[in-house]
Design a protein around this nucleic acid. Structure first.
Lengths: 330, 330
DNA sequence: CTGAAAGCGCTTACAG
DNA sequence: CTGAAAGCGCTTACAG
C-alpha cells in the first residue's frame, strides 16, 4: 500500500479510501491510485486489515464437520461456500472425526485465526466451553445436531418425523416386525431417528422387540453382520430401517448374500449415489443438504452482521424417495 | 497479550517468548505467564503474528479443487488436511466449478489472505498469471492436472498408463470394438486417458473407430444417451471404456435399460461407492486419493519450509479392480 | 476532499 | 535472562 501511495503520489489514507470504495475521493486521484494499484498488482493484506478495523472482520469462516469426505457434509459445505464466497468470505474446513478432543483443538485454532463465525456439526457432549467465544462475538451455527449446554442457532433435518413417516410407510405395507439398525447413540440424530421409529411402531400397534433393534453400529461391515444374523434367527424381520448411509449399504449386502433383496423390505435414512441402480432400488429418506448449507450460511452471515434476535431452531424438510425396496409387502 | 503481561507482571516480550516456547525464560516467570494465559484463556492472534514475523507465515493453506463435493477431491482434501493440521496449518477450501474466471478470483482471494501455499486442480488453460505469486514466495502444488506455462510441482495419477492397461485388459479378452466415452478435452486428464486408449488399441491391432469414440461428455445423462445410441447402431461395441465416474454410471444405466449389462464389457476410470454391489460389479481403475493428498501436503510444506530443489512431477500409481463387468468376453 | 499521527496485536532488533 | 522501542500493513480519529 505504501508503494501504491508513493507511485500515485498520494497519502496512505487516500489509497485506503480508494481500496475501500469510499465515495469522497476526487475522481482524478482515484484513477491515479487505481492505475498504481493495478501496475503493482497490489492486493490488500486481509490480516492487517482485520487487525485495525473497528469491526475486526477477518472475512474468514470456519466449517467443522464430521468428515470432509462424507457426502452429506461435503454437499452442505459446498453450498455454504457458494453463498458465503459471493459475500467475500473464505471458509476454513476441518474434519472432527467424531473425536471430542479434536473439536476442542479445532475450535481453538479457529479462534486463533479470529474467524468471524463458524458452523459446527458437534461431536463432543458439551459445548458450554464455547460460551466464552460466543460472548466475545464469534458467530456460531450448529448443523445436523444441536449444541449441548449452549444457546446458539441450529439447522437440522426433521429426523424424528421423517423416520416416523418412513417406518409408517413400512407398517402401512403390512410389516409388523421391522428391524432397526442405528448408529452411535452419542449422536443426537441417532437418538432422534430412533424415537421416530418407536413412535411409528407404537402408532401402528407393533411390538418393539429389542432383539431386532441394534444401536451403536459404527460401520457398514458391522451393519452387514448384524443384518445377516437377524435374518438367520428364528423370527427374522420382514423389513429393515437403517438409520444411516453406511448401515443401509451393509443391510443391502446382507440381503444380497442371502438372496432376500426382493423379499425383505428396506428403507434407509440418507440418500446415496446409485441407490436407484440397485435392484430393487433402495427407498430412502433424503436430506436436503443444499438447503441446509444455504440456510446455515444465511444465518451465520446475519449474525455476523448484527442480528441479535433469539436463537433459531430450523428444521429443514426431508423427502421420502420410493424406489422399490421400501414397497415390498410383508 | 497485553492483559496477560499485566496479570503476570512481566513485559510483553516475555509473554511472547513463553507463547513461542523460547528456551531462555526463567522457569518462575514462565509458570506465572502460563497461569495468566490460562486464566484469561489467551489465544494468540495469528493474523497479528503473521504481520510481524520475519517469515510472515499465516499458517493458512489454500485448497482449490473442482468441487468440494466431488468424492475424489473430497478424499484428497481430507488426507491433505490430516497431514497439515498436525503441523499447525489450517486449510481454506474452495470449489472452482471448472470456471476459469473463478480460478482467478479464488487465487486472488488466497493472496489477500496471504496463504503460505496452495494446491490447485487448475481449470483455466493458462497459469502464467501465477508466476508473480510464485516469485513472491507463495508455494504451489498442482494436483490432478499440471499447470500450463508455469513451473511448479505436480502430483497426478498415471492416467495414460492406467488407461492403456485397462483397455488392454479388454483387448486381451477378445474385444476389438471398444467404445470410448471421454469427458471435457480441455481437461488434461481427459486427453491423457484418451491417448492411453489410442495406444492400447494400436498395440492390439484394433481399429480406432471415431463412430464409437465420443469426447466432451459433461454429464451422466449425456453419457447414458451416447451409450444407448451406440448400442442401438449397426455395429455396436462389445465393450466400453468410460473415462470418468459419472460417465461410467451413465453407461451402466444404458446397459441396464437394454438388458445388456451381462453381455457388454465395461471398465471405468475412477472407483465409486457401490461399484461392487451392482451386478455385474463394475471393474474400474481406482485412483489413490489418500496418497495423492498426503503427497501434495508433504510437497507443499517442504516448499514452504525452504525446499528449493527443481519442480517435481509425481505420478501416483492407480489400481485396477476387477469386479466382473471388465471380464465379460467378446 | 486529503493527510499526518496514532494504534490494532504481535515480533524484531537492540540494550541492559 | 528481561525489557523498552520500533515497526509489520493497515484503519481510525482527528486536523486542516
Amino acid at each position: 500500500m505504501k508503494d501504491v501511495a508513493a507511485l500515485a503520489g498520494v497519502s496512505l489514507k487516500t489509497v485506503s479510501r480508494v481500496i475501500n470504495g469510499e465515495a469522497s475521493v476526487n475522481a482524478d486521484l482515484r484513477t491515479r491510485v487505481e492505475a498504481a494499484a493495478e501496475q503493482l498488482r497490489y492486493l490488500p493484506n486481509l490480516g492487517a486489515t482485520a487487525l485495525r478495523r473497528r469491526d475486526g472482520r477477518s472475512m474468514t469462516l470456519g466449517a467443522l464437520v464430521e468428515d470432509l469426505s462424507n457426502p452429506f457434509f461435503a454437499l452442505v459445505m459446498r453450498h455454504f461456500e457458494d453463498t458465503v464466497f459471493d459475500k467475500g468470505y473464505s471458509m476454513i474446513a476441518t474434519s472432527l472425526e467424531e473425536q471430542a478432543e479434536l473439536e476442542h483443538q479445532v475450535t481453538t485454532q479457529m479462534v486463533r485465526h479470529r474467524v468471524d463465525g463458524m458452523f459446527i456439526a458437534p461431536c463432543s457432549t458439551d459445548q458450554s466451553y464455547l460460551a466464552r467465544e460466543v460472548a466475545a462475538g464469534v458467530a456460531m451455527v450448529f448443523v445436523d445436531r444441536p449444541p449441548i449446554n449452549l444457546d446458539a442457532d441450529v439447522v437440522v433435518s426433521d429426523n424424528r418425523r421423517a423416520t416416523r413417516n418412513a417406518v409408517k410407510h413400512l407398517t402401512d405395507r403390512g410389516h409388523t416386525r421391522i428391524a432397526y439398525l442405528g448408529n452411535m447413540e452419542t449422536i443426537w440424530t441417532a437418538r432422534e431417528r430412533r424415537s421416530g421409529y418407536d413412535a411409528a411402531m407404537l402408532e401402528a400397534g407393533c411390538p418393539i422387540d429389542d432383539s431386532i433393534i441394534v444401536m451403536n453400529i459404527r460401520s457398514e461391515e458391522q451393519a452387514r453382520v448384524v443384518a445377516h444374523d437377524m435374518l438367520g434367527a428364528d423370527e427374522p424381520p420382514t423389513a429393515f430401517f437403517a438409520s444411516q448411509n453406511l448401515l443401509t449399504i451393509g443391510v443391502v449386502k446382507a440381503l444380497k448374500e442371502l438372496g432376500l433383496e426382493h423379499h425383505v423390505a428396506l428403507v434407509g435414512y440418507d440418500d446415496f449415489t446409485l441407490a436407484d441402480l440397485l435392484s430393487p432400488g433402495i427407498s430412502v429418506v433424503a436430506q436436503d443438504a443444499p438447503t441446509i448449507g444455504h440456510t446455515v450460511a444465511e444465518l451465520l452471515i446475519g449474525r455476523i452482521e448484527g442480528d441479535v434476535s433469539p436463537s433459531k431452531f430450523i428444521e429443514v424438510p426431508t423427502t421420502f424417495i420410493a424406489r422399490g425396496s421400501g414397497e415390498i409387502l410383508a
